[in-house]
């Protein structure tokens, strides 16, 4: 190792600094991320309802996934299915309007022929909901839509004689879900718009020019050029959004607080949290559902990776950096 050119010796002698610089990251990462992950896997095989646990093998997984083996297990299974359903419904209901809206906006923002004044202003205003404390937003909407006649929206609709009696917006199945979908869309459409915009700006402008000369209408251009060429980035947005959707916590959790419990908006993240965040924690159920969530996320992440692989490295790097930003912001 010591032999070799002068340059090589130098690069070897500095190598230890490389380790020193990255060491703190990996130490902290090992203690606060890797160990907790392994611990989660361990806890998934442990018993429930007590701080001191004992091994139960794969019983928790059997209970969650099939509900076989007793009444209590069946209840856990049914709850798990319910919260997974809620999670999917809430994700789907915010993703569809979000992607449609964002696609339209992104196409308009990047359209060179449209002379829209104050584009920068619109972008700033539309991104704003994304940075506001999610917990505060949830509290605001719970208060505005509160079930009694003291709820602001109920009162307003009653004053306008649209409603005779207060409606249960926050506890009702459809209304509570629609409110959460609206909040999530409201919070994330600006972000998705900006991401899709940089995707559109990556499309070769001569394609649009040629289409224009050939007399293609803006609608034709949108469906024949923009959408097909954006497909990879849209699929990618969808998958990262799905991973984000699986983590949805603040909004549904706070909809469960306050006046009444709401079973229609409880998500998988809330389910996991409620099981371990107890005086007598159900570490087993919580751990097992975390492991299931982990596998689902890993599969989705793998799909992302495959999409990414076909592209040129530069687009790939750009895109994964955006996804990272999104996930850092607790993205959807």
């Amino acid at each position: 190792m010591a032999s070799g050119s002068n340059g090589k010796i130098r690069s070897i002698s500095y190598a230890r600094y490389g380790y020193i610089f990255i060491l703190p990251f990996f130490i902290v990462y090992a203690i606060f991320q890797v160990y907790p992950l392994l611990n989660t896997f361990y806890l998934s095989t442990q018993s429930n309802g007590s701080v001191v646990t004992e091994s139960v093998g794969l019983q928790n997984f059997a209970a969650i996934l099939s509900g076989s083996g007793g009444r209590a297990f069946k209840a856990v299974h049914e709850n798990f299915i319910r919260v997974m359903g809620n999670t999917l419904i809430l994700w789907f209901g915010n993703f569809i309007p979000q992607i449609v809206l964002s696609l339209l906006l992104a196409a308009w923002f990047t359209d060179a022929f449209l002379k829209i004044k104050g584009k920068g202003f619109y972008k700033i205003v539309m991104y704003m909901p994304n940075i506001i404390t999610a917990a505060s937003v949830a509290a605001l909407f719970v208060m505005l839509f509160a079930d009694s006649q003291f709820g602001a929206i109920n009162k307003m609709l009653m004053n306008m004689h649209i409603l005779d009696a207060p409606k249960n917006f926050v506890t009702g199945q459809t209304t509570s879900r629609v409110i959460i979908m609206f909040i999530q869309t409201w919070m994330w459409f600006g972000n998705t718009t900006i991401m899709l915009m940089s995707g559109i700006m990556g499309i070769n402008p001569s394609l649009f020019e040629a289409a224009n000369i050939d007399g293609a209408t803006p609608t034709q251009q949108f469906f024949q050029i923009t959408i097909p060429l954006l497909r990879p980035i849209m699929l990618y947005t969808m998958v990262t959004s799905m991973i984000g959707g699986l983590q949805m916590f603040d909004m549904p959790y706070l909809f469960n607080m306050g006046t009444a419990q709401n079973r229609h908006t409880e998500t998988i993240a809330v389910f996991i949290y409620n099981h371990f965040h107890n005086l007598k924690p159900n570490y087993g159920y919580s751990g097992a559902s975390s492991v299931i969530l982990f596998i689902v996320t890993a599969v989705l992440g793998g799909i992302c990776f495959i999409f990414n692989k076909d592209d040129d490295p530069k687009a790939k790097e750009r895109r994964s950096s955006k996804a990272a930003l999104k996930s850092k912001l607790g993205g959807l």
């Binding site: 992950l37 989660t40 806890l43 983590q247 371990f276 996320t297 992440g301």
Partner: peptide, 9 residues
């Protein structure tokens, strides 16, 4: 990409 919810237990 590992979500914090997965490791939180």
């Amino acid at each position: 990409m590992i979500p914090v919810q997965v490791t939180s237990v």
